[in-house]
Simulated assay, not measured.
Amino acid sequence: MTTYVWDYLPEYENEREDILGAVEKVFSSGRLVLAESVKGFEEEFAAYHGVGTCVGVDNGTNAIKLALQALGVGPGDEVVTVSNTAAPTVVAIDGAGATPVFVDVNEDDFLIDTDQVEAAVTSRTKCLLPVHLYGQCVDLAPLRALADRHGLALLEDCAQAHGARQHGRLAGTTGDAAAYSFYPTKVLGAYGDGGAVLTSRPEVGTALRKLRYYGMEKTYYTVQTPAHNSRLDEVQAEILRRKLTRLDAYTAARREVARRYAEGLGDTGLVLPKVNEGNEHVYYVYVVRHPRRDEIIERLKAHDISLNISYPWPVHTMSGFAHLGYRQGSLPVTEKLAGEIFSLPMYPSLPAGLQDKVIAAIREVLT
Rank of each mutant, 00 (worst) to 15 (best):
A258W: 13
E217I: 11
Y311A: 05
L270G: 00
Y347Q: 06
I305C: 09
I305D: 07
A302P: 02
E335S: 02
T222Q: 09
A322I: 11
A253S: 14
L247F: 09
A338G: 01
R259F: 13
Y221P: 02
Q355T: 06
L247G: 07
S310Y: 11
V235F: 03
P332W: 12
S330D: 14
I239H: 11
K357Q: 12
P348W: 08
I239V: 15
E298P: 05
V282S: 00
F321H: 12
Y283W: 03
D233Y: 01
P314N: 07
Q236T: 00
K274S: 15
G320F: 10
A361E: 02
E280Y: 09
G264T: 10
D356V: 08
P291H: 14
S306G: 04
V315M: 11
E256S: 14
L337D: 01
E217N: 12
H281P: 01
E263S: 12
G353S: 15
A361R: 02
A302I: 01
V282H: 00
T245Q: 08
G264H: 13
L244K: 03
R299G: 04
K336F: 07
F342H: 01
L272T: 01
K301Y: 03
E298M: 07
Y221A: 15
G278E: 11
K336R: 15
K301T: 06
